[in-house]
Nucleic acid binder design. Structure first.
Length: 746
DNA sequence: GTAGGGTTAG
């Protein structure tokens, strides 16, 4: 087709999309040398109609692109939702003569930064150097931004250092980056240096440093920066307002928050979606529920961001049902809920004991077509871990693998924790070993897993590995290793770690470290030493410390120290019935029934009831709950029958029930009956009758496993040839062939 | 026609 026939198409801005496509098609088919005028017309049409892929297709099809303005093309493509399209034009851009339009580089770098694509950006950097453009202010600040975005701070620093007179933009970028890395002094020094060299910070500088401090956990610094910018004559713009509000919320200073709110109203910023969300968030963090709801209700059109902020604010303040109710209403109103909305509601449930609901919502979000991301998974997994829903946890693992989320440290750390808490310590270790990057949370999850499982040797080996790695142990790592030593009765090792913590790592011992040491000493029989240790603490011991001593007194039958520990606990935790029960058990084990009576009377007069024992067991993807002495389960008759049968078998083998563990002073036979009703035994029996022979069982209990149940389940593991895993409040017991992984030391 | 800053989920 001849050129004139194309022109016959008479393109003008009001031509239809079809006409433009037709012209494009003719150009391709006729193999015409580019008619730059026509091409430019088609290009601008495509760009104006957000048809960016068509733009690229057209440019790539042109044979003569000499006079094409790559800088304007790249500029619009780099700001498009698909910046990779800009990158796809690079080869063509480099082949034209003259090779480089000086205005094209910054846009091209912007595209590389937003992807981000380190390799392509580095090529552009090289090109800038070769073509002598590397001293250009625009090119330098683009390079700076690109390297910071790719996380290559050293390169960014080099670019900055080579700038003879850094611009405001360059200063702003490095200052914001220092602030975001949490370097308060670094950011402030740069700010001073900038002002000394005669460059005044502008709104972007201030907003950047405020956002950096706020996100890096320095909200006080962020707020003081707001005050400083005001003193220096800068006023907050709408972006500044939405940046400053989360910081005000984080320091919980309602007065600051109210002032910013008032200012926002004065400026007429109330309609800004980001500001509305930030306001709701601020009121939520300051626990001003009515303020939060008022802001939400006053916005005319519903924005997902403000809905999400409201859900989080409600959850944060314990209004879980209200959050669920609102969430349901948002769905009915057909608000386009996004991944943040779903993650918020999953987190809300998981953090407030609604574990099953959290898992249901996780499934629902997927069926609504919303893809969970690297934040959703760590929010969900603790719910699976809590109720040992291994199948659900595993399916979240599969999802993460398929979506490439396991590379995220938070996802994998949460997986380690989930597997460990579901009794799959080896799976936890596999996840750990496969991780390309680990942070302190990862190491602690694995160490904590070993501690829970009583695998002291593995914990010590891993701890040694950690000491030799780049990641140094923190206070929590030491809690894990001390707890491992305490579980296994490794007195000398525990002492060594305790000393090493302060001497070599400069970590001051906290309450939980003392509690571990007290537990370590007292449970290995050194009760007096443990008591002396408490006396030498640099601060007042809390309930965990006394609790460790009290439970060791029960194991060793030490009445005198038990009474001292209990007396302190009654003062610290007047409403915790568990402490009364423990003391009573100590008396009962020594046949001191007067003491038992006294404790029972005291409990009665204080209106206290024993916390009921409760166990969970997952059978075929369904979680069953069993309460001590509760006969409401539909299969209770069969459960009791099975336990009776097992009891007979045990008696035949000379087994004696350990009756000293029952709370009350009752007839021997009744005591035996009561022990039968413990929830962990009921759960195990339910597992036995509901699964095929040989299936391993996993049970969780809300309290410490009772000594009699421990003995009975050990027997069951051998008699029924079952591997039974019991997770109690403190640790795991893996019962197999009549033996327990805890070595009867717990 | 070229560079920089915002809310809500861990």
């Amino acid at each position: 087709m001849a050129r004139h026939s194309v022109q016959l198409l008479r393109l003008n801005p009001s031509s239809s999309f079809f006409q433009f496509q037709l012209a494009h098609a003719h150009m391709l088919k006729s193999g015409l040398k580019a008619d730059t005028h026509l091409a430019a017309e088609i290009l601008s049409f495509y760009a104006a109609h957000v048809r960016f892929p068509d733009v690229v297709a057209l440019v790539l099809s042109l044979t003569d692109t000499d006079t094409l303005s790559f800088s304007s093309l790249l500029s619009s493509l780099s700001r498009s939702p698909i910046p990779s399209l800009a990158v796809s034009l690079f080869p063509r851009m480099l082949s034209v003569k003259p090779p480089l339009d000086p205005f094209a580089l910054p846009s091209a770098l912007k595209a590389c930064a937003s992807l981000p694509s380190l390799v392509n950006g580095q090529k552009l950097h090289a090109l800038a150097v070769v073509s002598g453009a590397s001293n250009d202010t625009f090119v330098c600040s683009s390079l700076l931004h690109f390297y910071l975005k790719c996380g290559v701070q050293a390169e960014a620093q080099k670019v900055f250092d080579r700038m003879p007179n850094p611009s405001v933009v360059a200063y702003s970028a490095v200052i914001a980056d220092a602030a975001a890395r949490g370097s308060v002094s670094g950011a402030k020094k740069l700010l001073s240096k900038m002002q000394e060299s005669g460059v005044e910070p502008n709104l972007v500088t201030w907003n950047g440093v405020i956002a950096g401090f706020s996100r890096s956990g320095h909200p006080h610094e962020a707020v003081s920066m707001v005050q400083r910018m005001l003193l220096e004559g800068c006023r907050l713009d709408s972006i500044g307002v939405s940046t400053a509000l989360p910081a005000a919320g984080d320091i919980g200073d309602l007065w600051v928050g109210l002032q910013i709110h008032g200012y926002a109203i004065k400026c007429g910023f109330e309609a800004d979606h980001c500001i509305v969300s930030a306001l709701i968030d601020m009121y939520g963090k300051c626990q001003v529920i009515d303020g939060m709801i008022r802001v939400f209700d006053e916005v005319g059109n519903m924005d997902v961001g403000s809905c999400n902020a409201l859900l989080t604010g409600l959850a944060r303040n314990g209004f879980v049902d209200e959050a669920l109710m609102r969430f349901g209403r948002f769905k009915e109103q057909e608000i386009e809920l996004n991944v943040v909305s779903w993650t918020s509601i999953v987190a809300c449930c998981a953090q407030n004991g609604k574990d099953v609901k959290a898992m249901e919502l996780f499934r629902e979000m997927q069926s609504c077509g919303v893809r969970p991301n690297s934040v959703t998974i760590p929010c969900l997994l603790p719910a699976c871990a809590n109720i040992v829903a291994l199948m659900h946890g595993r399916s979240a693992h599969c999802f993460s693998l398929r979506s490439g989320l396991t590379f995220d440290v938070y996802v994998s750390s949460a997986l380690i924790d989930m597997y460990a808490k579901c009794g799959r310590i080896r799976d936890a270790r596999t996840v750990f070993d496969l991780m390309p990057m680990r942070n302190v949370v990862t190491w602690n999850a694995m160490l904590g897993g070993y501690a829970m499982h009583g695998r002291a040797k593995d914990a010590i080996d891993l701890f040694t590995l950690m000491e030799g790695s780049k990641q140094k142990p923190d206070s929590i790592s030491f809690t894990c290793i001390l707890s491992s030593c305490s579980q296994a009765g490794l007195k000398d090792e525990g002492r060594r770690f305790f000393l090493e913590m302060e001497r070599e790592y400069g970590i001051a011992a906290r309450m939980e470290h003392y509690a571990c040491m007290v537990s370590l000493l007292s449970r290995s029989g050194k009760l007096d030493e443990a008591y002396r240790f408490i006396g030498e603490m640099p601060f007042y011991p809390d309930a965990c410390v006394w609790g460790a001593l009290l439970s060791a007194c029960r194991v060793h039958g030490n009445v005198q120290l038990g009474e001292i520990a209990a007396k302190n606990l009654f003062k610290l935790e007047p409403h915790n019935a568990g402490n009364y029960v423990l003391l009573s058990n100590i008396y009962a084990s020594k046949g001191l029934w007067d003491g038992v009576d006294k404790v029972r009377d005291e409990m009665k007069s204080l209106g206290m009831k024993k916390n009921p024992g409760c166990s969970w067991i997952e059978i075929k993807n369904k979680v069953h709950i069993l309460l001590a002495g509760d006969s409401s389960h539909t299969k209770m008759e069969q459960i009791v029958e099975r336990l009776d049968h097992l009891g007979d078998e045990m008696k035949k083998r000379g087994y004696q029930p350990s009756t000293d563990l029952a709370l009350q002073d009752v007839e021997e036979q009744d005591k035996e009956q009561m022990l039968c009703g413990h929830s962990e035994k009921l759960a195990v029996a339910l597992g036995l009758i509901s699964t095929s022979p040989g299936t391993p069982l996993r049970v969780i209990k809300n309290l410490r496993i009772c000594g009699d149940c421990h003995a009975v389940i050990k027997f069951i593991s051998e008699f029924e040839r079952r591997e039974i895993l019991v997770r109690d409040i403190n640790r795991f017991h893996l019962l197999k062939d009549g033996k327990c992984s805890c070595g009867d030391y717990w």
